[in-house]
């Protein structure tokens, strides 16, 4: 098990492994999203208050969930990169940031489009919206920091430190609606009360869970592809990389 793990951490083995796994992640993700979006947009009944406008959750909720998960993954990879100096973890930090930033931006934009007709405002400075915007700035900071270094390994380590500092914002975003008064509603699925007594009806929930799974697998595929690119670039003088490109 450990030898397999160590082998996977070597760039050429990872590259071949990702080459096989990524298409499966993308394929499964497309199927899940197709069924999930069909279920969410056609099968699920309209909401008792919001009517059809609630259907934005099938994009907004997965995007927001990913914005937090990707940052957490980035911080864990950052810790591994800093402590064990593992090359692949450095690559993961750098490769994940733009994807996480995109999910964060998508969550903010879909939320604003929903907020105008439902709340009556595109944007308010409540704790949830503000902390999610701070999350976007943290992602942009990691991207910018990485670009400002000529040495990619030094850049990735600087990004890892920033990712670790910023990870404190992840629980703040999640619990902002519990700790403080906010205009944004509380958690529907991931709350102690919601687990006991579901706050969403089953025929609205299953498409949401499929969309969530689809988004996660899509992220997995994109991360593998981006890491492959980054590894190829960093090892461009190695023979295996030249062979992989030539093949």
């Amino acid at each position: 098990m450990w030898t397999w793990f160590h082998q996977l951490a070597s760039p050429p083995t990872f590259y071949r492994f990702a080459e096989v796994l990524a298409p499966w992640l993308f394929g499964t993700s497309v199927m899940l999203l197709a069924v999930g979006l069909y279920g969410g947009l056609y099968v699920a009944p309209p909401d008792y208050q919001q009517g059809d406008a609630f259907r934005i959750i099938y994009v907004h909720v997965p995007a927001a969930a990913l914005s937090l998960s990707v940052y957490t993954i980035m911080a864990v990879a950052g810790a591994i990169a800093l402590i064990w100096r593992m090359k692949l973890a450095e690559v993961a930090v750098v490769a994940a940031a733009p994807v996480g930033a995109s999910f964060t931006a998508l969550a903010l934009v879909t939320g604003m489009l929903w907020g105008k007709p439902m709340w009556g405002a595109y944007w308010v400075w409540d704790a949830r919206l503000t902390s999610e915007l701070v999350l976007l700035f943290l992602y942009v900071g990691v991207i910018g920091l990485n670009q400002s270094y000529a040495d990619p390994r030094a850049g990735a380590r600087a990004c890892a430190w920033l990712a670790l500092v910023g990870v404190v914002n992840v629980p703040i975003v999640h619990y902002s609606v519990t700790w403080w008064n906010s205009l944004h509603q509380g958690s529907t699925i991931l709350s102690a009360e919601g687990m006991r007594n579901p706050k969403i009806s089953g025929d609205m929930l299953w498409p949401l869970l499929l969309c969530l799974a689809g988004f996660y697998l899509f992220f997995g595929g994109v991360l593998l592809r981006r890491m492959q690119n980054e590894v190829l670039w960093r090892e461009r003088n190695a023979r295996w990389a030249q062979q992989a490109v030539a093949a």
Partner: peptide
């Protein structure tokens, strides 16, 4: 001078809305 709606976290079809 301004009123915003604060939606709750319940998502249900109209016929089961009574239960929440």
């Amino acid at each position: 001078s301004r009123i915003l709606a604060k939606h709750d976290e319940n998502y249900v079809p109209p016929n089961v809305a009574k239960s929440i």
